[in-house]
Amino acid sequence: MTTTAPAAADVRKDSPGAAARDPRRPGRIRRIGLPYLLLLPALFLELLVHLVPMVIGIVMSFKELTQFYIRDWGAAPWSGLRNYRMSVDFDAPVGEALLHSFLVTIAFTVLSVGLCWLIGTTAAVYMQETFRGRGLLRALFLVPYALPVYAAVITWVFMFQHDNGLVNHVLHDQLHLTDKPSFWLIGDNSFYALLTVSVWKGWPFAFLIVMAGLQNIPGELYEAAALDGAGRWQQIRRITLPSLRPVNQVLVLVLFLWTFNDFNTPYVLFGKTAPAAADLISVHIYQASFVTWNFGTGSAMSVLLLLFLLVVTGVYLVLTSRGRRTSDV
C-alpha cells in the first residue's frame, strides 16, 4: 500500500540519471529489487539462526523429547500439551521449581535494572559538563562493560570465595561485621552476590546510553532556564530528566530483556546448577534440558518464557508510548 507514492518519488529523483543511462523499465525493476537483494544476507541469517530454530523449538515443546530420541528428534512421539501442563502444574515439583525460578528472576531483574539505570543516569548527569579528569573517569567507568563476561565474573567468583576471598576478608577479618565468614556462592547470599555482579557489569551500559542521550539536549534550553533563575538541581529536574524520557524508554526495555535472559553471568558465577536463591530462569531451563536430558519440557518452558517477554514488551511499549509522538522504526 505504501509503495505507490514513494516509487513515484524514486522515479522523479532518479530521472536525470536514469533516463540517460537505461531504458525505463529494466531500471525500475532493478530499483525495486535492490532493497530485497541488500536485505538477503541478513534475512537468510535471521531465518537460519533465529526464526527457524524458534519454530523448531516450538514444535519440540509438543514432543516427548528425551535422550532416546535425540539422534532422530522427528521420531519422538507427540505429547500434546503435556510438557506445558507439567511446566505450569505448580503443585508438582517441576512446576513449583519453575515458578520459584520465575519469581527469583523477576525480583532480580527489577532490582538489577533499577540500580543499573539509577547509577548510570546519576553518573552521566554528574559528568555532563567538563571537569578535570572527566575523560579518564569516563574510560574507567566503561571498563566493566568492556571486559569479557567470563573474565569479569570469574574475578568476582574469586572475591566471593569463602576462605581466600576479598569480601569475607573485608567484612569478617577487617570490619568484624559477621560472626563467621559467610558463604556467598551457595545459600541465600547468592542472590545478593549475583545482583552485585550484575549491577557492576550492567550499569556502564546505562551510563553510555544516557551520556549519548544528554548530548542531544540543546544547550539553549539550559541557558533559557538559567536566565529564568532556575538553579542546577531545578535544571536537572525540569530539563535533563524530562528530555531523557525517549532514551529511557528504549534503555529500560533493553536492560530488562538482557537481564531477564542473562545466562552468562549466573553460569560463570555458579556453574551448571545455580543455588535456589539465585536460580535464574535461563539457567533453570538449561538445567532442565541439558542436565536432566528432557528437551521437550525445556522447550515448553522456553516458549512460555518467550510469551511472557512478548506480553511484557507489548504492554510496556503501549504504556510508555502514550503521549509520545509515534516515530517510524
Binding site: S299, L310, T313
Partner: peptide
C-alpha cells in the same frame, strides 16, 4: 524482536540444524 528471544530457546534447535 529477536533481541528478546531467550538464547536457551534456540540453542538445541540450532544444534540440530
Amino acid at each position: 524482536s529477536t533481541q528478546m528471544f531467550p538464547g536457551i530457546l534456540f540453542l538445541l534447535p540450532l544444534f540440530l540444524i
